Amino acid sequence: MEGLDTQARKRLDLAARAAWLYYIQGKTQDEIAGEIGISRQNVQRLVALAQTERLIKFRLDHELAGCLDLEKRLRDRFELVVCKVIPGESEHDENRTGVGIGAAEILEGFLAQKAPVTLAIGTGRALREAVRQMPAMSRPQHRIVSLIGNITRDGRASPYDVAIRLADRVEAACYPLPTPVVTDTEDERERVQQQRGYQTIRHLVDEAKAHIMGIGRVDWGSPLHADGFITESELADVMERGAVGEMRGWTFNAAGEVLSGGFLDRLTAMPLEPANSRTALVAGAGRGKVPAIRAALRGRLANALVTDEATARAVLALA
């Protein structure tokens, strides 16, 4: 399959996924169509393509076979509505390119819809890479709303803010949250949250079809501290109270319980609550993020995941 362009490669990947679901998991074409988000006729064509390209013998002859098995195990273990495991095991860069491509495919699926869609977006390096991997689109009917502020306490803008970048990429309406991630006092946070602009964004977040979020570890050198959003003493405080991960600034313990107190009482980000009817997706990979990903899935803070093979295996082993 060397020499294939990006579109041809993506189509073969999709054909492999459809073939796996059809032949290995025994799903009907209608079930596959609903799971992948395409028409039944497209499922038929993809399965036929998998046969033509000899992806199917007595086993699935494609590099995604191991990924698809991990996806199924993660879906079953954590009752996920969406799961994408991408090939690769790099630890040094947390496989951001691969995870970004996987997240971009999911974003593209939401944004390809003709009916207006509201997406709530977090921040982080993996999501910034996802936006970079997105094709340019014109989707003025959609709305992109930010889940977290983008300013440090000293006034610097976050380099990992994603909502504005994504909205610009797809020409959608953008609703950023131009507030400090953490305010100096609780009174200041209350004043910020009482502003009309904040209330508008809160309403849009509540009605969003999906929350797309990065996920971070909580330890010395973690982005939340290294990028200047919290102090060393504030980091030490949540670590002592058992924090293992954070999503949009909110820290949580190994059971997936969101913590409170300390700087969290001054956090302006939209509340982090268990996922119910909407898709709540986290994108991230790397050994350091395994406890955070496992906790987020265990506590239902996320019901969808994009990660890589090594991370998927580690999360399942830890679970």
Rank of each mutant, 00 (worst) to 15 (best):
A33G: 08
L281W: 07
L318W: 07
A163T: 12
R9L: 13
R132S: 02
A236M: 11
A136C: 03
L166R: 11
G261K: 03
D61R: 15
A236Y: 08
G249D: 06
G155S: 04
R156E: 12
F263S: 05
Q29P: 09
P291Q: 08
N150W: 04
R266C: 09
R75E: 13
R40F: 14
L60Q: 13
P271K: 06
D184Y: 11
D30E: 15
T185V: 06
E207R: 15
G228W: 08
V306M: 09
R143L: 10
A136Y: 09
G88E: 03
A15I: 05
N150R: 12
Q194E: 13
Q195A: 14
A126M: 07
L111K: 03
R217D: 13
H225E: 09
A112W: 05
V282C: 09
L177K: 03
R196Y: 10
I164Q: 03
R75V: 11
E105C: 08
H211D: 05
A65N: 13
L111C: 10
T28F: 06
I212S: 11
L235S: 01
T97I: 02
A292H: 12
L147S: 12
A296G: 10
L147H: 12
G221Y: 10
T251L: 04
G284Q: 03
E129P: 02
R294F: 07
A19Q: 00
G288F: 03
G149V: 07
L318Q: 14
A126K: 00
I293T: 06
M239N: 04
T52C: 00
L235A: 00
T152A: 08
E232I: 07
H142R: 05
T97C: 01
T185I: 08
D154V: 03
I86M: 14
Y23Q: 01
A302L: 05
N42Q: 15
E2W: 06
K114T: 14
R266D: 05
D227Y: 13
H211T: 06
G216I: 00
M213C: 15
L14A: 13
P274G: 04
R202F: 11
L70P: 11
D69F: 09
L267C: 08
R96W: 01
D206K: 15
D30C: 08
Q195N: 11
R266Y: 08
A317K: 15
Q51G: 01
E207D: 14
K209S: 11
T152I: 06
Q44D: 12
Y22G: 02
R40D: 08
T307P: 08
A283T: 11
R165P: 12
G109S: 13
A312P: 12
A285E: 04
I24E: 00
G256C: 02
E35L: 14
L107C: 04
E63I: 04
E188K: 03
L177T: 05
P274V: 02
D69Q: 14
R266L: 06
Y175T: 11
L46M: 13
L166W: 09
A172M: 11
P159Y: 10
A280L: 05
P180Q: 03
P140W: 09
G286T: 00
L68G: 10
I56H: 02
T97P: 00
V81D: 09
D168N: 13
G155Y: 05
D13G: 13
